[in-house]
Simulated scan of single mutants.
Amino acid sequence: MSKSFERYQKRKLISSYFSVTLSIGLVLFLLGILGLLVLNTQKLGDHFKEQITISVFFRDSAKQVEIDQLQKSLVMADYTKSAVYVSKEEAAELHSEEIGENFMEFLGYNPLKNSIDVQLNAAFVSPVQVDSIAGVIGEKSFVEEVSYDRPTIELLSENVQRIGLGILVASAVFTLIAVLLINSSIRLSIYSRRFIIKTMQMVGATKAFIRRPFIATSVKLGMIGACLALLALYGLLVYLDGNFPELGLLDDLPQIGLLFGVVFLLGIFIAGISTFFATQRFLNLRTDDLYY
């Protein structure tokens, strides 16, 4: 009977440890994802800004040497990420592929223009700056039209900062929720051993002596949970970087290392401080109050 009860208690303790470790790991994993979003908000915003294209269309009378000179000047400009020349023949092929038929067979000629597709560096993508750049290019006599999606540029400029602020607020709220969830899991674990705490206290053990093994155990569980969270976080980063290499999520290794370090230390700190207050609560209770 005694051995059966001991096995039951051991299984119950292991189950308690497992649930605490799992809850710490899941919460820290989600917290790490929010941390990645905070760190990469600007990078994501820059990525979308650099997808904006300014299309420079040329008159039929434009000479190739003029087009080449403009392309070279655009490539050398500070605001340019890339400047790609697209001939009217290439444009016709691309358009035919998009619509699934050769439109020139119906028209009998190619109505498209030679053009240069210009992608800007993110720092120069704002309505005022793009208008200024397009105005300078459009002054060339051999340029017929400069086309770009101004409403999209306005939306990007307005929303990138709002999204960044929103993610910061969400991260702060979720950090608080993470602390409360981990604290609740640890308190439940300590609650199941409240009688052991009181028994140790009744035989003369000091509060610091009683707290020490509980805090040490919780810190170990916090470390294990944090390691599980970091492994999952690293796997997510590798997956995203493999599928979206243009985002460069693994380019800034020191920044990622700092985030991983913060998540690891946060797991240890929350586990340790939650255990301290949970054990302190039961140490301060009277024996009769342990039954309620």
Results as ranks from 00 to 15, higher is better:
Lys3Phe: 13
Lys3Asp: 12
Phe5Glu: 12
Gln9Val: 13
Lys10Glu: 12
Arg11Phe: 04
Ser15Glu: 09
Ser15Arg: 12
Ser16Arg: 00
Tyr17Gly: 11
Tyr17Met: 14
Ser19Arg: 06
Val20Met: 00
Ile24Val: 15
Leu26Tyr: 05
Val27Trp: 04
Phe29Trp: 14
Leu30Thr: 05
Gly35Phe: 03
Leu36Arg: 10
Leu37His: 01
Leu37Gly: 06
Thr41Arg: 04
Thr41Pro: 02
His47Ile: 06
Phe48Pro: 02
Gln51Met: 09
Ile54Met: 08
Ser55Leu: 06
Phe57Gly: 09
Arg59Ile: 13
Asp60Glu: 15
Ala62Glu: 14
Gln64Asn: 13
Ile67Gln: 09
Ile67Phe: 11
Asp68Val: 11
Leu70Ile: 13
Leu70His: 11
Lys72Tyr: 15
Val75Asn: 00
Val75Asp: 05
Met76Arg: 07
Thr80His: 11
Ser87Glu: 07
Lys88Ile: 00
Glu89Ser: 08
Glu90Lys: 03
Glu90Trp: 03
Glu93Leu: 08
Leu94Gly: 10
Leu94His: 12
Ser96Thr: 14
Ile99Val: 15
Gly100Lys: 07
Phe106Trp: 15
Leu107Asn: 03
Asn114Ile: 01
Gln119Phe: 12
Asn121Ile: 07
Phe124Leu: 04
Ser126Ala: 15
Gly135Thr: 10
Ser141Asp: 07
Tyr148Arg: 04
Asp149Arg: 10
Arg150Gln: 07
Thr152Arg: 10
Ile153Gly: 00
Glu158Lys: 14
Glu158Ile: 04
Val160His: 03
Ala170Cys: 05
Ser171Val: 07
Val173Tyr: 09
Val173Thr: 10
Leu176Lys: 00
Ile182Trp: 05
Ser184Phe: 15
Ser189Thr: 11
Ser189Val: 15
Phe195Cys: 04
Thr199Met: 13
Phe209Tyr: 15
Arg211Asp: 02
Pro213Cys: 05
Ile215Val: 15
Ile215Glu: 01
Ala216Gly: 10
Thr217Lys: 11
Lys220Gly: 15
Gly222Tyr: 07
Ala226Pro: 02
Leu228Met: 08
Leu231Ser: 13
Gly235Trp: 05
Leu237Cys: 02
Asn243Leu: 06
Glu246Arg: 00
Leu247Asn: 00
Gly248Phe: 03
Leu249Gln: 06
Pro254Met: 05
Pro254Gly: 03
Pro254Ile: 07
Val263Arg: 06
Leu266Gly: 10
Leu266Ile: 13
Leu266Lys: 06
Phe269Val: 09
Ala271Cys: 06
Ile273Gly: 02
Ile273Arg: 12
Ile273His: 08
Phe276Asp: 14
Phe277Gln: 11
Thr279Pro: 10
Phe282Leu: 02
Asp289Ala: 11
Tyr291Trp: 02
